[in-house]
Write a protein that binds this DNA or RNA. Structure first.
Lengths: 344, 344
DNA sequence: CTGAAAGCGCTTACAG
DNA sequence: CTGAAAGCGCTTACAG
């Protein structure tokens, strides 16, 4: 292996000073165009790449973003929330488009992640993707704020105004899902998901659901709300409990697709036809949703767009520009699980 | 924001030289234990973190790995191969366990990715996750080899011996899937997937399939092999073509779960019962597999283990240790789509 | 338009 | 056991 070329090697070959090489490679107009091109040609020929560590050290930035995915301790290690996986994809792409690199890390709630990345100059800013209950790590957020870390957090609006959050409008998502079921004539609509506030996103979906019912003159029935966390198994159990309660219902709105898929499995197990006897609407539009049987009608969170906004926002923070909370609108993807007519 | 503490600040506070601080923080036994602890305490108090750029520049390594996921141009942007997503999760974890950071990037075949990461000292080594046909970028691999980049590639064994590949034993996977179907009494088994060699992994699965048939005294029927790429839609089409051919078959083995899910959709559409009339076995055990209806019997690639081996291998390469090609055994996950008896 | 020089914050021989 | 010093490879004021 011939050792890597440095700017000094190029300077030598081009017969100029190392400073000029550095300027030329950054395409500085200070350098004579012809010299600039000659230097760039030599750099290319020697397969030269600027040493990131050296330039970062000098400029005190890293052109890198860190993505911390905070895992739900209630989930087992092996399975990551598919919704986050979509986000990961779009964030990766958005980051690259902005000329930044992306450091990815899964974090246990327990570990000492706060601030490490920016303090060690590994990243200029941090994007946090976390499960429901941000209260659990409020303390860690405090530390981040205290240290003036540039970070943005995905999810519900935060009560600490120093925290910039970007998220989809969960209330609105709950509204459109419920309005859709109402428009299909359903009046007894069950809700499967955590409505306790432990998971602010789920709670907002539930609140949207309740508000849409009220707006239609339907009183939400507390007996039709069953607790579920974001897993298929939990959705299954919640639906079984609902079924066992003997309550009357013609539709189910779930706080997530995973819950919906579990619920559908429970309904099938009990011989209940979906959507003929019970209509189901999920939330997230994860890839599985379209493969479910029947294909799941669901509230789509635009991960593509969300990833872009998230990246754009941290970058603004880093550059000291104005940024503000932002709620992204959701949309309904109508498939067959709700009983609406669609071409397959 | 109080500006970040440096080792000099700590030295000042501890009344020692900066060199001693540096040694103490790396826990060098050269430094008196008591002094060492005092320095570490001060560092903690000041929330000091070693500047990565400075230490990397000095030591000429980055303690960072890069994961390049090469996307299949035949797939649309939005959907990443779910199998890769699992791998991403396990690689991220394995990397962290080794004390390394992980840079993640999705790469278009077209772009100029080769070597950038290691040349610019952003990463010490590279893990490549790519779709089927590595021949398409053989040239880029050449460049990597030429530059003595430390990299390992996921997938089929490579004909260039300078390339280290780690992968699951696709031939064996094809064998166990087929043996299982044979054991259930099926003799006319269709194969859905690319068998052309354009995708070496799919071809090996096919070859395993053919060999298992031969071993059982069954002649593989070329009429029962239909081309499909790794998407649900392609699986659907292949199954429709198979159905339309009028050929007789009681089972289908597909080169991937996505194909299997598409095939099941096609079978249902045509009123064919799975598994009663046609048994289906997939490949990958992606998360969707267990939610499919019926739940998919499939060949599981142990992503957890694979991620660990992949990371371990690049690290060995980086350290100049001995490493060799490695084939990881697959296992069969029996669910209901094959008609075998299982408790649900 | 170009060059000499300082310095980013570390690590590590070298000397004691 | 500790310190003074060099140097990793850049970028960028400063001087011309």
């Amino acid at each position: 292996m011939t050792s890597k070329a440095t700017s000094i090697d190029i300077a030598y070959k081009a017969g100029v000073s190392q400073s000029t090489v550095s300027r030329a490679l950054r395409n500085s107009p200070l350098v004579n165009l012809e010299t600039r091109q000659r230097i760039q040609a030599i750099a290319k020929e020697l397969n030269y790449k600027v040493d990131k560590n050296a330039s970062n050290l000098r400029t005190q930035n890293s052109l890198t973003l860190a993505l911390l995915i905070c895992e739900d301790p209630t989930n087992d290690d092996s399975m990551i929330n598919p919704f986050f996986l979509s986000m990961l994809g779009s964030i990766t792409r958005a980051t690259a488009r902005q000329g930044y690199d992306l450091l990815v890390s899964f974090q246990q709630l327990s570990s000492d992640w706060h601030a490490d990345y920016e303090d060690s100059n590994k990243a200029d800013g941090i994007i946090l993707l976390g499960y429901g209950d941000y209260m659990d790590y409020a303390h860690k957020l405090e530390t981040l704020i205290e240290k003036n870390t540039h970070f943005v957090i995905w999810g519900a609006e935060h009560n600490n105004k120093a925290v910039l959050s970007i998220g989809c409008d969960n209330h609105q998502g709950g509204v459109i899902a419920t309005e859709h079921l109402l428009s299909l004539g359903h009046r007894h609509i069950a809700f499967l998901g955590d409505a306790s506030g432990h998971s602010p996103e789920f709670r907002d979906r539930y609140l949207g659901h309740v508000d849409a019912l009220s707006a239609a003159g339907v009183q939400a029935d507390k007996q039709l709300q069953y607790h579920a966390i974001n897993t298929e198994a939990s959705g299954y159990e919640a639906a079984i409990a609902l079924l066992d309660s003997g309550a009357q219902f013609e539709a189910i709105f779930t706080a997530s697709d995973l819950i919906a898929i579990g619920a559908i499995r429970a309904l099938k197990k009990r011989g209940v036809l979906v959507p003929e006897q019970v209509a189901v609407v999920g939330y997230d539009d994860i890839p599985v949703a379209s493969f479910a049987n029947p294909a799941l009608t669901t509230v789509k969170q635009d991960t593509q767009f969300a990833g872009e906004i998230l990246v754009e926002s941290v970058l603004k923070l880093i550059r000291g520009q104005e940024v503000s909370q932002r709620l992204i609108k959701t949309s309904l993807v109508v498939r067959s699980s709700c009983g609406a007519k669609v071409d397959e």
